[in-house]
Design a protein around this nucleic acid. Structure first.
Lengths: 346, 346
DNA sequence: TGACGGCCTTGGATCGATCAAGGGGGTGCG
DNA sequence: CGCACCCCCTTGATCGATCCAAGGCCGTCA
């Protein structure tokens, strides 16, 4: 029902209140409240009658009133930063959607607020002080970002997407994707395809995420008794850096395959291959990281490590609920394993 | 200040209320309220005193209480759908960020909720009934989508991003980007580069957006006295369709340039060029639409029409504010002009 | 008959900000 | 001197749901 009825009816100027429902159903306000929040307390027939009236009137509890009384908002704050121009990093889009879906499942909504590099905690502070959100999801836990520490100190409930790499003191809960496992997958995949000289193009050494991903490549190479000297390069995360690194590696070490820390870098590699008339997937294999739209749309599909962002979102919400209901959180961190989206480039 | 003080202080278990501030400042609650909302009503010295106390206590009005009393939420609802896998359409990401920024400027926040093709108005209905949001921004105004009509009927305030193509009855306000102007820019750009045989690859005829973009190409060609017969193709918005269309057009009509309705299709064209050993930008020019990350990251930078999403967001918020303050909205629709991001492919 | 438990009602207070009306003190004017 | 008036501030009621405590009604069982 609902559907056609809703299409036909028009919302009154002021929506019905709990008292309206109570009067119409011939019960007390308390009973209506119970029908909504503690159905078990009602006798089945009364419950049915109240529910019917609720449906007839199209009643829905006023959020503001409920929020005020219960001191909750059912809102989760998320600082929304757009993907950087000129990179292939499109993870945010998919993650946000997953988070919105997962939140909805348990009655939460996602509230976005802008970020400000000048005052990284300002947005959080405002929302917290005005009790506009119940909790936060923090996504940018990179080196030196004060948000997690600050939120912890404020005793604000939050879950981080990303490990507290640099901070052994951190006591907050987090969910992350095992980058090393991703590059292990990628490297093993290439080894299974018969490659032995597999190069790594990653980020600069000050990126713990980059070093983590690199370690997956390194481990797998060694575990398979393969040499790695002269096969690794660390550069900026921009296309032309990836292209240059690939050119140098090809000249000096003659790899037959590349594993990259990002799709952006992988695009650089593909560019170099194109210039040198080398066919990706045939002459040289390439694997990227993030399974961005670029990887999916590039004419020679780019094999890429795909983060299980849907699962990350579900895990985050699950943790958040435990946190908010003051249940003891059993594990401080959850590490999920990515998958490999295999395409023509490998 | 603020910053260092905030970092040092810890939020109390329950934040200070208006009454706390009032007592500490030696004034009444109403006076504090006025200090926040109607500073003009206070004598300068009183105002200063109250403001100082507010700063000392770190007071911020409780959202829920304010929302309840004023019957507003300062929240704008946006249905968040992720970019389709396998396409290059990354506009949502940038648009959402722009909207979040523009909202913040005027004291609004963006609330995301998931979409459901089964029940397209369900999410809107819930939020509306529970008075959780003040207004909506509707983005998917494609053919046959009942949202705009439904919201209009409910008298729910909303602004659409996208024209009501198919509905002459529509009386709601909207903001849109002039797609035809975009393809005019693209086509003229190619003509200026000396091209005369410029092909069009667009979407199927049932897409009004596609037809709009196509008309820009057509107009510009004719305005310059150039022939268009045999130079147009309408296909699905997937990479391989673009590739096939390009192959056919190259064989049958020998164009020297392509204007595409999307970056996805443009990628298809680039693929065909690659197979045929034709150099994009040298042998054949290509222009896409949307300035997606793919266009930016593709090794041969793809020239692409860029929608002014920041301006769209600002315009939407401006309109929304007028709508909510019951000011007469002077114009029913606003049409913004895109720009051309010129890269190596043309 | 009385005690008891299940189910509902009643009345009130509460969350914290805002609205609407009212009060006190000073000034100006007849 | 008295009254009107304005400025600045205060007071009580209100938004709608939830929480709490007390009690009523009815049927069952000892």
């Amino acid at each position: 029902m609902g559907r056609s009825e809703r299409l036909g009816s028009q919302l009154p100027v002021t929506p019905p209140t709990l008292a309206d429902v109570a009067e119409r159903a011939g019960v007390s306000r308390q009973t209506v409240s119970n029908a909504v929040n503690n159905p078990d307390l009602l006798r089945p027939d009364t419950l049915e009658r109240v529910r019917q009236t609720i449906a007839e009137l199209g009643y829905s509890p006023n959020r503001a009133a409920r929020n005020l009384r219960t001191r909750t908002s059912s809102l989760i704050g998320l600082r929304f930063a757009p993907a950087q121009e000129g990179t292939a990093n499109a993870a945010m889009d998919r993650f946000v959607h997953s988070l919105v879906e997962a939140s909805e499942e348990v009655g939460y909504h996602v509230l976005l607020f802008p970020g400000d590099d000048e005052d990284p905690v300002g947005g959080y502070d405002n929302l917290l002080r005005s009790t506009a959100v119940d909790a936060f999801v923090v996504t940018d836990t990179y080196l030196g970002n004060p948000q997690a520490a600050w939120l912890s100190q404020q005793r604000a409930p939050f879950v981080a997407f990303g490990r507290p790499w640099d901070d052994d003191e951190a006591r907050h809960v987090w969910v992350d994707v095992d980058g090393a496992a991703g590059t292990r997958l990628a490297t093993q995949h290439l080894i299974d395809r018969g490659h032995t000289r597999i190069a790594w193009i990653g980020w600069r050494k000050d990126s713990p995420i980059g070093e983590d991903r690199r370690s997956g490549w390194l481990q797998t190479m060694h575990a398979n008794g393969l040499a790695t000297t002269g096969l690794a390069s660390r550069v900026e995360d921009v296309v032309h850096s990836g292209a240059e690194a690939a050119a140098v590696l090809l000249d000096e070490s003659e790899p037959t395959a590349f594993v990259c820390a990002s799709d952006t870098l992988a695009m650089g590699v593909l560019h170099t291959l194109w210039i040198r008339q080398l066919a990706p997937g045939k002459d040289i294999a390439v694997v990227g990281f993030d399974d961005s739209q670029v990887a999916q749309v590039y004419p020679v599909g780019l094999t890429s490590v795909r983060q299980p962002l849907e699962d990350v979102a579900v895990e985050i919400i699950k943790t958040l609920r435990a946190l908010l209901s003051h249940q003891p959180v059993e594990t401080r961190g959850v590490l999920l394993t990515p998958t490999l989206a295999i395409r023509e480039s490998s």
